[in-house]
Simulated scan of single mutants.
Amino acid sequence: MLRLHRSALYYVRPLLRAALELTPSKSDTPVTFVPTVAGLLVRAQNENVAIEFTVEGAGSGAPISVPYGSLAKVEGRQHEPLELAATLEGNVFRWSEVGIPQVLSAPALEPAAWPSLPAQDCANDAELLTALREAAATTDIASLRYSLGCIRFRGDGGQLAATDGRQAILLSGFRFPWSGDVLARRCPVFTKLRLAATDERHVGRTEDWLVFRAPRWTLWLKIKHEARFPDVESQIPAREQADTTLSLAEADATFILQKLKHLPGGADQNEPITIDLNGSVAVRAKNDSSSVTELVLSSSERSGAQVRCCSDRRYLQRAVQLGFREILFRGTAAPLFCRDTRRAYVWALLSAEHCLKHNEQATRIASPRAATAVQWANSESNSGS
């Protein structure tokens, strides 16, 4: 018999669903409970991902496997005891609901063969999980061109790379105990896993699996040996190759994040905006039923050649959310790019024929000057806008 708490399943079940991308049709996916001296391991896997959580619990005997769908019927928000036992007729959950005993029978499933841990791994800093999330957000799982649903892990230099064909990101400065490139399918669970600041993060690999290990969970991603990945490095120039640099003031970065999504045209295909660095620094947008609205970035500066180009607003917003405060331009057609010591981000521009020129009739909204930025930001926060 195994003993644990209903709240453990309330915590683990959505993570299993995210990691294995489980849908109602996959509710019979086996979830295995393994007793150990450190607690209970809760495991599940498919052809691309295996994931294991350590939860508070106790027990002895052989592992017990039940369908994923049964967990929703026995989980709970409270720290209430739950028992799981194997019988001759199958598996049985027992718990109490407002003091009334409850019983649920679940089919006994055969545990799948579990992947091994690597012989060696490398500790990494707190940025690893953030980097995995950002890389996963830059993939296209539906693409049939190359393997755009994969993340590339480069052992030399400890670099992650991802692209969906319209944007690409490089994240470096990590430690991987292999040489060469390894591809693995992106995993949605990266956005849900959490780590304490002091938690160790280890990365290793076996012949067929990449392995990410933290104190309370371990994740295996199947290596795609035959997959092909595009040469994203060639699409991200050196900083010195830029003709123009937009230096965003911190107040203007905040202004963009608050205002950009509300500009007209957000429902249009590619959500176009015009970035205009001719004289003032401005961002413009319109749709078929509205006049031009222009955001003027009062405290930001252009260095280099004047330029006007058309971009998908989502990529500008993402660059700012990533913390980049310099946007680099090479003319009006080449992709825009950003660089810092550990990261690079690039995205393709839209056709210049969609650019909006300066219009005296435009609705113009200027960001506050640097001197009043703090007061303005506090006012915006307090008003909830």
Rank of each mutant, 00 (worst) to 15 (best):
E301G: 00
G165S: 07
R17Y: 04
E353R: 03
V37G: 07
A18G: 08
R13F: 01
D340W: 01
I327A: 07
F176N: 00
S367K: 00
R185M: 14
S383A: 06
F212H: 08
R3P: 01
R313M: 14
W220M: 04
L15P: 03
V283S: 07
S367E: 09
S291K: 00
V203R: 05
S289A: 01
N46T: 13
F53D: 07
V281D: 00
V74C: 05
D181C: 00
G384Y: 01
I365C: 08
A333N: 12
Q361D: 13
P67K: 08
P264L: 06
F93T: 11
S298R: 05
G76V: 10
A253K: 02
V42R: 04
F337S: 02
P101T: 13
Q361P: 02
R364A: 12
I327D: 00
R302D: 08
A249W: 04
I151A: 08
P237K: 11
V232Y: 05
T244K: 03
T32C: 14
L221N: 08
T206H: 10
L297F: 15
D231T: 10
L88D: 14
L246G: 09
L16H: 06
G155K: 01
P230H: 12
S60M: 10
D199R: 07
Q235V: 08
F174M: 10
K73L: 15
